[in-house]
Design a protein around this nucleic acid. Structure first.
Length: 924
RNA sequence: GCCCGGGUGGUGAAAUCGGUAGACACGAGGGACUUAAAAUCCCUUGCUAUUCAAAGUGGCGUGCGGGUUCAAUUCCCGCCCCGGGCACCA
């Protein structure tokens, strides 16, 4: 019988007790090993929390409680990321100071978090908008400035006309709109502060390998950094001078049949006088400017461009004269803003070359080594452009049983020759006689059998008048669409579609490349670069971080502009530069922040020469405060340093960091700042977050995101009120794997409550003794729960505890077992376990009790039930000792009537017996 | 297009150094208790065939098609679909 409990009374009572006893106070106690367990701190929005938000906080709470109970000194803090546009937009709308809204929201968030019973040490609470906090955000900026990593730039940046501010690339949606207001972002040249994040790109990339992070997040970071290794190669121009291109494939240089410059390339203005069709070129450049990045990023659109008449370049590899184009498919902001185009081996160049009728030269063949060829799906296109498909007689059963020609490559024969021979033998098609140049379009090798290689041939423009078919029939189709959609043709059609008229992009051996013929791509990259005097180099997608915002609610950038001394940092003694109050929070609209209007704040003295100076009026982006906040938790009240050496040494790095979403931006910025702080000796570790656990979200019951807009938000307060915080905690952890996104289920919640009631009722099953089975189950449970908490597999930990409760209800359990069970459940359901703990006569909080250990011998079963297979089919089961011998197992089979009957008339030819797992009898 | 995940009952899922697929929970069905309902307890619950029914027995079954193996959700090859990241990045 379940015993109900009064969660309201129990939960508030114990929370009060923990607070009074400062149960979760964190110390820098060097005698214990430390555990720094961190959540991505929230942005306190006006909407408050919904039940999805606490999921990660519950997980870190369980983990941190477990660590505390296993003898660690735990740092599990909470704080607020409170600068940024929502608070500011709210302020503009309601004419209130953003600080007021932030204070109110923080209070609300805190109240909502409090009732969930978290073990935060609130004495370490931080808030990025607190001047005592952002003093150090400003200090870090100054250090960056002093090291030359923060600089002013006038380059065109992303400008959001809606938000009236500049944005970093990271702030844009994929389609080039502003992530906040969905305005179309423009390119606008403006003075901006920029941080040289690129200088850290290599280190950020390399150190990813040292981190225990989910692969998809590491991959997202690699993508974002986007390092490409290649070479810069100079092309001499007919009019003197040279153009430098960046390429990742210098091995294809012999196939470079033209050059393309970005429309913004400096070269174009510079040589306007020698460009014969200047008018046309100028028009194109203007059009490209007007298009903005957003339209240009559309990869599906037709390639456009203009040939620069009067200018040619020389391919340095073969001395060939090649044309020069401008085209907007080349971006000025990447590489050198100019490319060598190799249409044979690059899709974009291929499309462009096709459209403009430029030559295509294949210089890579994709055959690394081949000793057997097999052509599958030999589509042949005849003179009229019709498709000939060779189909063998008989009903086709699968694609690979048809249209295949294959055989070994004879000695001294190239794969092409081997295939030509096979085609001749099979199809009586003499490609040599027909003067056809067979083209290898695709090669795939079957890796299970390395001796066999699959090659796909497509041959263009065959004279089929003298073509007869050796075996089977030849069908003719006007287009690929005409080929029937039966089982096998369908598959071949897919192949054909993908193979026809395509450049090849794989690495392979070089052809048509003079002395480099036969060399493989990898070596040729270096060799060819060397030959033409190019430079092996790297380039990145990541751009330097546009760090200023023309908005009010952010950290003022601590710089004073002086006519004489330039940009001068505010001296440390004058930090923080406190954000002054203003009348109006709206951006000025002219690209200035509202701070620019406060004359007596702006006008100040230059710290260097004491002459007149003007304060920087831009503020920092929202990501600034969150780029280092984890460090402040280590030493939140330090007025002299960002964090003391001693505390940093003790706590760093964050052992487990939990959050979702911000996979790219926040993590990349924080890693960048951390590495910088490492370089200047503030922190002692190369990386801030050793382990990252990705959090899957909770959707509303209707499967949509929880949002006011859909009216499907479930408030945690209501749930706590209804069934208690412990139930909410257990339910959210039991829903499924932590990283999965799962819809909320009110029914599922009931299951969690029922479980806790059974735990509560278990005290009525206490007896002086318990069966061995129960003891063993308890030890198994302790083992499982300990291991699962460490791995964030909370769902299976809870499942194990449920199994124990189900058993203990039936068999009864000792007081000691019950006590141990309560302790392992305590991190999940801190209130109820604390209540029972005291009711059954324990002193002191359960949350500082030692987490029980298990006896490995007791985690093994005395007898196991294993499956018995006969000829691989499951036919029954036997229960024997886990260490039983084969003879004993067979004896058990003979004692089992059904199994014995099955084998009695047969001879057992083979026995496969795996102790504790399976018995498989092969009988004749 | 490229890269990373993933695809298992009505639902959330469990089990992958290959070894009884579906633990645990929800839902559903049946029963007990109750004047009744709720709550609680017990039983059944992958699909399917055979059977009046039950027990039993058989077949199928972890996205699809192949393969390796005594044995495949797990390993290999090919494909499809879903989620996420990146995307004219040379």
């Amino acid at each position: 019988m379940h015993k109900r409990f009064d969660h309201k009374q129990i939960e508030s009572k114990w929370r009060e007790n923990w607070r009074e006893n400062k149960l979760y106070k964190t110390n820098e106690n060097t005698s214990k090993p430390k555990a720094f367990v961190l959540d991505m701190f929230p942005y306190p929005s006006g909407e408050g929390l919904h039940v999805g938000h606490p999921k990660g906080y519950i997980a870190t709470d369980i983990y941190s409680r477990f660590m505390r109970m296993t003898g660690h000194e735990v740092l599990h803090p909470m704080g607020w990321d409170a600068f940024g546009l929502p608070a500011e937009n709210f302020a503009i709308k309601n004419k209130t100071h953003p600080r007021v809204a932030v204070e109110k929201n923080v209070a609300r968030f805190k109240e909502q978090l409090e009732v969930l019973g978290f073990d935060y040490d609130w004495e370490r609470e931080i808030n990025t908008t607190d001047p005592n906090y952002y003093k150090w955000t400003q200090w870090i900026f100054i250090q960056l400035f002093k090291k030359g990593l923060a600089y002013e730039s006038n380059e065109p940046i992303n400008w959001c006309p809606g938000c009236q501010t500049g944005l970093a690339n990271e702030d844009l949606e994929a389609d080039g709109t502003c992530e906040r207001c969905e305005s179309k972002v423009e390119q606008k040249p403006m003075r901006q502060w920029v941080l040289k994040i690129r200088e850290y790109a290599d280190r950020m990339l390399a150190d990813l390998d040292t981190l225990e992070w989910p692969e998809h997040i590491k991959e997202a970071q690699r993508n974002w950094i986007g390092r490409s290794e290649g070479a810069e190669i100079d092309f001499e121009l007919s009019i003197g001078g040279k153009v430098t291109v960046f390429t990742t494939r210098p091995d294809t240089l012999f196939g470079a049949t033209y050059l393309v410059l970005a429309p913004e390339h400096e070269f174009i203005e510079k040589y306007s006088k020698v460009i014969l069709n200047w008018h046309e070129v100028e028009t194109y450049v203007k059009e490209a400017e007007g298009k903005k990045e957003m339209d240009r990023l559309d990869a599906t659109k037709d390639k456009t461009g203009v040939k620069l008449e009067g200018i040619t370049a020389v391919n340095p590899a073969n001395g060939e004269t090649i044309p020069v184009y401008i085209a907007d498919y080349v971006l000025a902001s990447y590489g050198t803003g100019a490319i060598m185009a190799v249409p044979a081996h690059d899709e974009r160049d291929f499309a462009f070359a096709k459209k403009f009728g430029i030559g295509i030269r294949y210089v890579i063949t994709e055959i690394p080594t081949i000793n057997r060829v097999k052509a599958t799906g030999a589509f042949i296109r005849n003179r009229e452009g019709k498709y000939l498909l060779q189909r063998r007689t008989g009903a086709p059963t699968s694609p690979d049983k048809l249209c295949t020609f294959g055989g070994h490559v004879e000695k001294g024969e190239s794969p092409e020759q081997a295939l030509a021979r096979e085609l001749h033998e099979e199809l009586e098609l003499d490609i040599i006689k027909n003067k056809l140049a067979p083209r290898l379009v695709y090669l795939r090798k079957s890796s299970s059998d390395l001796r066999e290689e699959y090659a796909f041939y497509f041959i263009d423009k065959v004279d089929d008048s003298n073509l007869s078919v050796h075996e089977g029939q030849l069908e003719i189709f006007d287009s690929l669409e005409g080929i029937p959609d039966d089982e096998w043709a369908f598959s071949l059609k897919d192949f054909a579609h993908s193979m026809i008229d395509q450049p090849t992009i794989a690495l392979g051996k070089l052809i048509n490349s003079d002395e480099f013929d036969g060399m493989n791509s990898k070596e040729a990259k270096i060799a060819i670069t060397k030959k033409v005097g190019g430079r092996l180099t790297k380039t990145y997608k990541i751009k330097d971080w546009v760090f200023s915002r023309q908005r009010y609610w952010g950290e003022p950038i601590p710089i004073i502009h002086c006519d004489k001394c330039g940009a001068v940092p505010v001296p440390d003694s004058e930090l923080p530069v406190v954000l002054p109050d203003v009348e109006k929070y709206e951006p000025a609209g002219d690209g200035q922040s509202p701070l620019a209007n406060i004359e007596d704040w702006v006008n100040t003295k230059c710290p260097k020469c004491a002459g007149s100076g003007r304060r920087e009026t831009n503020t920092m982006p929202q990501w600034a405060g969150s780029s280092w906040y984890y460090l402040r938790y280590m030493d939140p009240h330090n007025t002299k340093e960002l964090v003391s050496k001693k505390n940093e040494k003790f706590w760093a790095p964050v052992d487990v960091y939990v959050g979702g979403d911000h996979a790219v931006r926040h993590l990349i910025y924080a890693r960048f700042w951390h590495k910088f702080l490492y370089d200047i000796g503030v922190v002692s570790t190369e990386e801030p977050f050793q382990r990252l656990e990705f959090l899957g979200f909770i959707l509303a019951e209707d499967g949509r995101k929880m949002s006011k807009r859909w009216g499907n938000v479930i408030n945690p307060d209501e749930i706590v009120n209804l069934v208690g915080a412990d139930t909410l905690r257990v339910y959210e952890m039991f829903m499924g794997p932590f990283e999965n996104t799962i819809a909320w289920s009110q029914d599922g919640l009931v299951g969690a409550r029922r479980f806790l009631e059974r735990v509560n009722g278990l005290r009525e099953h206490i007896s002086d003794t318990e069966p061995d089975e129960t003891t063993r189950q308890l030890h198994k449970t302790i083992k499982k729960v300990s291991e699962d908490i460490k791995e964030f597999k909370f769902n299976t930990a809870i499942s194990a505890m449920m199994i124990f409760v189900n058993l203990a209800e039936k068999t009864g359990l000792t007081a000691d077992s019950y006590k141990k069970f309560l302790v392992i459940l305590a991190p999940f359901a801190p209130h109820l376990t604390e209540e029972i703990w005291h009711e059954i006569g324990n002193e002191g909080s359960i949350h500082i009790a030692k987490f029980p250990t298990y006896d490995p011998d007791l985690t093994k079963d005395e007898a196991v039930t294993i499956g018995v297979q006969i000829n691989g089919k499951m036919r029954g089961e036997i229960t024997i000792s886990g260490e039983a011998s084969e003879e004993e197992a067979l004896k058990a089979v003979n004692e089992n009537e059904a199994l014995a009957n099955r084998i009695k008339d047969h001879k057992i030819t083979k026995i496969i017996y795996v102790q504790g797992r399976i018995l498989n009898l092969i009988i004749s």
